[in-house]
């Protein structure tokens, strides 16, 4: 199974190259504990922290409008040497300097953990979509790229890439405990710089898809259901189906069953004329 390691190295080299070319840059070091990361932030972090949506007129700054340039990737590795925990690098202007403007936006989350496996990929990928977890920050509902708004209220409180970086580190580490180190790169210098980043890592999309596919295969077909049968209103239907499965497979194979999915739906499906 291919890994992201060479792409992580590629991204780091690319960032160094941009720095060498005198792009405005800053590098910050954060604590590694998810709780400590949230300390002192100007906005709330967590489920439902962002109660509403951010309207066009309430936007302090926009990040990643496709016309400006946009790219977002998450790369993981088991090699702790490739990720510098708590480090955030920003190439280009910061949010407070961009009031009323629209910045190109490249975001790369690099994570490592000795126990990470391809089975974690889907969850890690999903953890980038922070939904309503950061007050004053709204990821727009787009598919492949990242496009976000920072609210005027958050802007007034000093929301910057340090805020976003710390929030993302805290959220990802909390959501996926097997992440032991995380580094973030933001690029806002130009559309060209963001596009360059995207080109370096575009191949990782197909690697990610392959990882998800392999994980499904590994997981296999499981009769077990996470819901407690005693409290499940589908229990009766489920039991009936289990009976059918047992009776049809008992004389052919072992007791090892590979069923059952949602019984409610099966009933619905069967009722179609």
């Amino acid at each position: 199974m291919p890994t992201f390691d060479e792409f992580i190295e590629g991204v780091c080299r690319y960032v160094e190259l941009l720095q060498e070319q005198d792009r405005p840059a800053k590098s910050l070091q954060f604590p590694n504990d998810p709780e400590q990361l949230r300390e002192g932030l100007p906005v709330q972090i967590g489920v439902n922290a962002n109660q509403g949506i951010i309207l066009r007129g309430d936007t302090f700054a926009e990040l990643g409008n496709p016309e400006m340039g946009s790219a977002s990737h998450l790369l993981w590795t088991t090699d702790s040497a490739l990720v510098s925990d708590g480090k955030m690098t920003l190439i280009g202007p910061d949010i407070p300097e961009s009031e009323g403007g629209s910045l190109p936006f490249g975001q790369v989350l690099l994570v490592s953990g000795p126990k990470l496996t391809p089975a974690d990929h889907e969850r890690l990928k999903g953890s980038q979509h922070v939904g309503d977890h950061i007050d004053g920050y709204m990821l727009r509902s787009t598919s492949e790229h990242i496009w976000a708004r920072v609210s005027k209220e958050a802007g007034a409180k000093g929301f910057d890439f340090e805020t976003l970086g710390r929030a993302l580190m805290s959220l990802v580490k909390s959501k996926v405990p097997s992440v032991s180190a995380m580094e973030i790169i933001f690029i806002t210098s130009s559309k060209k710089d963001v596009k360059g980043l995207d080109l370096i890592v575009s191949e990782t999309r197909s690697i990610g898809r392959e990882m998800i596919k392999e994980t499904w295969k590994e997981r296999g077909f499981d009769i077990d259901c996470e819901v407690d049968c005693a409290s499940c209103h589908d229990q009766e239907v489920c039991d009936d189906i289990r009976d059918i499965v047992h009776s049809t497979s008992s004389d052919e194979e072992s007791d090892e069953l590979r069923v059952v999915d949602n019984p409610v739906d099966q009933v619905n499906a069967e009722s179609v004329p």
Partner: peptide, 11 residues
């Protein structure tokens, strides 16, 4: 029969 694949497909 289709007792096992019915969770994947529909009628």
């Amino acid at each position: 029969g289709t007792e096992l694949s019915d969770s994947c497909f529909s009628a």
